[in-house]
Write a protein that binds this DNA or RNA. Sequence first.
DNA 1: ATGTAC
Length: 369
Amino acid sequence: MSTVTVFASPSSWIESDAVAQCHRVAALDGMTHVAGMPDLHPGKGAPIGAAMTSAVLYPFLVGSDIGCGIAVFPIRIKRPVPERLAARFPDLDRPVEAGDLPGYGWDGEIPAGHTEGLGTVGRGNHFVELARVGEVLDAGHARRLGLAGGDLLLIVHSGSRGLGERILRAHTEVHGAGPAPAPEAYLARHDEAVRWGSLNRRLMAARVADALGAAPAEPIVDECHNLVEVREGAYLHRKGAARGDGRDVLVAGTRGTPSYLVAAHAGADAGYSVAHGAGRKMSRADALRRGRAKHTVEELRRTPVGSVVVCGDRQLLFEEAPTAYKRIEQVIGDLAGFGLATPVVTTVPLVTYKTVARGPKSFTPRRTG
DNA sequence: ATGTAC
């Protein structure tokens, strides 16, 4: 008998489709518990924003972007003028050459020997953001992290690019949505993708620091939100849910609203997990359709908090509009209200890099309203 | 989310 618990207050918007997906997952063989985070929303087959515990390992519950996560790096820049810095961001759609890795502070091995796409951000909800610390909500914890109001941070949200996708596909081509018959073999490849994702985030931070004339730094936070953990003799699958057992986690807002760095302290009922972001409120298709009537490209590129969004792909700009996401304050309020996390600081975007590449030529945004 | 996929 399995259980489903969703950690969202009645006033938080959770799509019924997402809850239905949680129950469908809970009904799978071996499943013991599904914990939905306050950023829960429907995914492809499996919900996003959930920690799912089972006696058997289901690769599809983690999805293709194994190792996706968010890292935070302190950075010092003299006069952070968004427009000027946006123009200096490196091209993070172009991979780094393996020979350049020592220059970015990496002389170790590349997990799985996978060089394709290394140092690139990808698409979708991925981003690299220069932000400043806004409100300090837990002064003691912020001080322990070396953070004060006004400090600058690089926030990197990205994953394992083609590597994780390849690993999931190798499984699904044979076993579909079924469990991994040899969990250890899957886990070995999975662990490589998790390490690759973390390395990728470090490389991007180093690339940006280099381009902005700043010194590279070690991350103060780096938490993966798509992974499997072997815990208490079971498989704890996290899909869009960050490890929340005594860790610090950056819960991403949107490209135009603050994010929250939180101290997580989630227990077993929450799958030892916390939300990974604001969570989509609309599908990409809805966001595109409604956004085109509601926003101009200009207002999405220059946000209400004064930040600049670097995004050559107009379609992606609409899909990722702040209005396509839930209110981050509501998500954080639920995490705090259910005792899963304590907010430490907010971060306010200055420059968010999405992509320099242009989108499909056929896409021409129109403002009808 | 992804060098994708009816």
